[in-house]
């Protein structure tokens, strides 16, 4: 019980700070609007061609890319969560938390939870905007709920990774460099924004194993088609598995970096 309470209050602090920062909240709202409104509409033209529709599996590029934008948003949000731990270490807050009788493991987990909740809120905003732009979610509110959950679990993979790096590198600049080096390729070697059928063979091979593609598959299924569990379970299992592995890895890295 106290462990859950520790995790929650670590997350609580991050969330308060998130909502207090008006700029961050505004960016959270505007960013998906830009992505969907600009990119979605710009590329809508080429989705008129029948062979493109065949590759996309839908007539609307916007509907195809919405799951991709959902993952991209939580991905970019998650990778920044390591910054907070570097900051905490700098100002001595990390030490203050560790001097209190909380479980050490609650610190990285709480930060991951905060990133997941922020991500979940962003996903809801994206769903709202996409609906406004004409995307119809095939599975309705229940499907949207599952989409939000998958995206939150997915965000844990990235925040866990970011935290693991952050406890090792100790400076924000290094963390940012590493994280930027990874996120863009991760995004563009997946089928989040472009169909695999349109990729050259080597890229399609990468896209097949890319965790982003695995997470996007069930979300796309829920958005475009319906409750086809057969097409979703691999993606969900891989995402949950990776999230668990990353959470454990982050715990281990955090423990290793703070015990002396």
């Amino acid at each position: 019980m106290t462990f859950l309470s520790d995790v929650w209050y670590v997350a609580w602090r991050e969330l308060i700070k998130f909502f207090r920062s008006k700029v961050r909240v505004v960016v959270t709202l505007v960013q998906p609007l830009l992505w969907l409104g600009l990119m979605g509409n710009v590329l809508q033209g080429f989705a008129k061609a029948p062979y493109v529709q065949q590759m996309l599996g839908t007539q609307s590029y916007l509907a195809f890319m919405t799951p991709g934008i959902i993952l991209m948003t939580v991905l970019f949000g998650g990778v920044f969560s390591g910054i907070s731990i570097i900051w905490d270490r700098r100002i001595g807050y990390l030490e203050k938390m560790m001097a209190a009788p909380i479980s050490r493991g609650a610190i990285p987990l709480g930060k991951m939870l905060a990133a997941a909740i922020q991500g979940g809120i962003q996903v809801l905003i994206i769903v709202f905007i996409a609906t406004g732009l004409g995307v119809r979610f095939a599975t309705g509110p229940a499907g949207i709920l599952l989409i939000v959950l998958i995206a939150m679990v997915f965000s844990t993979i990235l925040s866990g990774f970011s935290l693991s790096v952050a406890v090792t590198v100790k400076t924000q600049e290094t963390l940012m460099a590493l994280v930027n080096f990874l996120t863009m390729p991760l995004m563009f070697t997946s089928n989040a924004l472009f169909p695999r059928a349109a990729m050259p063979a080597w890229l399609a091979a990468i896209a097949k194993v890319n965790p982003v593609s695995h997470a996007v598959a069930p979300i796309r299924e829920l958005t475009l088609y319906g409750w086809n569990w057969g097409a979703m379970y691999t993606g969900i299992a891989v995402t949950v598995g990776l999230a668990l592995a990353m959470a454990l890895f982050a715990q281990w890295m955090f423990h290793r970096a703070t015990v002396e």
């Binding site: 602090r13 308060i16 700070k17 207090r20 920062s21 100002i91 001595g92 807050y93 030490e95 203050k96 001097a99």
Partner: peptide, 13 residues
């Protein structure tokens, strides 16, 4: 109780 050398207050709270 422990108050460290660096004032560990979260200034955005």
């Amino acid at each position: 109780g422990y108050a460290a050398q660096e004032t560990a207050v979260d200034d955005r709270l």
